[in-house]
């Protein structure tokens, strides 16, 4: 930069220098992307192979676009089981999630120790994918819906616990102070000021968790945790893509219906 020897008072400011962090960040991003995408070190992303794959997949595609409609009767039972799994997991999981949320918000936690412990537990619970829970609980309870229910309960604790705890973090703490100033115990103050403030949000998250469970039950069924997923797994293993496609369509419809109801309810709640 060359500054004029006698600068007038309203000189144009020099263009602010770009921090070295920006190009360094972009370079790091590109490097990681190349590394992760390359055939040698990473997943081997290549466009030609993609097109070759699409050609090979033609028969699959044809089957997928020609669903085997007459198989619908066999799906009713598994769907009802999926519904049972989703309901029980949402009810039990969300109830537990509320307790976890109260423990893991700075505002409502009864003490530092329970706050830190709750936070650690919630982080671990959230870090495990739903399917991994299902695998472990199939080992614990053996094959059947019970494993699916318990897996989804933990999954819901993670999702709803985090969302609710963040909602509690965001509430106005004035009423809590007012309750304490009136001589209330901590538990009473939380019950009377925090709970009513977040209850509508919590119910909305729980409805959302129910939707997620319907989707997830597809997946947890893969490892033998009951429901429609188990049927899907059998169809996939048997290369019955026409049945796969019917199942996917049915799930699409069920999720769509549940989602519409739950969105309407959520809108009235919050």
């Amino acid at each position: 930069m060359t500054a004029a020897p006698t600068q007038p008072a309203s000189a144009r400011p020099p263009k602010p220098p770009i921090s070295w962090k920006v190009p360094a960040g972009i370079a790091a991003f590109l490097l990681v992307t190349w590394w992760a995408g390359s055939g040698r070190f990473g997943v081997g992303l290549s466009i030609p192979e993609l097109f070759a794959g699409l050609e090979r997949g033609q028969r699959i595609m044809e089957d997928l676009f020609d669903p085997r409609w007459q198989a619908w009767r066999g799906l009713i039972g598994p769907f009802i089981e999926t519904l049972r799994i989703a309901i029980l997991a949402a009810l039990l999981g969300c109830a537990a999630a509320f307790g976890m949320a109260v423990l893991t918000s700075r505002i409502s936690a009864p003490g530092l120790r329970s706050f830190l412990a709750g936070k650690a537990v919630l982080n671990v619970v959230r870090s495990i994918p739903d399917l991994l829970y299902a695998m472990v609980f199939v080992a614990v309870f053996s094959i059947g819906p019970l494993a699916g229910i318990v897996a989804l309960i933990l999954f819901n604790i993670g999702v709803v616990g985090k969302l609710t705890s963040e909602t509690i973090d965001g509430i106005d703490t004035g009423p809590l102070e007012a309750a304490q100033a009136a001589g209330a115990r901590h538990s009473q103050a939380v019950r009377t000021s925090v709970v009513p403030s977040v209850l509508p949000n919590f119910v909305a998250y729980s409805l959302y968790a129910f939707e997620l469970n319907l989707r997830a039950s597809l997946v947890v069924g893969f490892v033998g945790a009951g429901g429609i997923g188990q049927v899907l797994f059998v169809a996939l293993n048997g290369f019955r893509y026409d049945v796969v496609s019917l199942i996917v369509i049915c799930i699409f419809i069920v999720v769509f219906l549940v989602e519409s109801v739950s969105i309407a309810l959520r809108r009235r709640l919050v």
């Binding site: 106005d172 004035g174 009423p175 102070e177 007012a178 304490q180 100033a181 009136a182 001589g183 009377t192 000021s193 009513p196 403030s197 209850l199 509508p200």
Partner: peptide, 16 residues
């Protein structure tokens, strides 16, 4: 505290 009532600038009511 139970013998002392307090009134706040921001009312501090539970709105919901």
């Amino acid at each position: 505290r139970s013998d002392i009532g307090m009134i706040f600038q921001g009312f501090n009511l539970v709105k919901r």
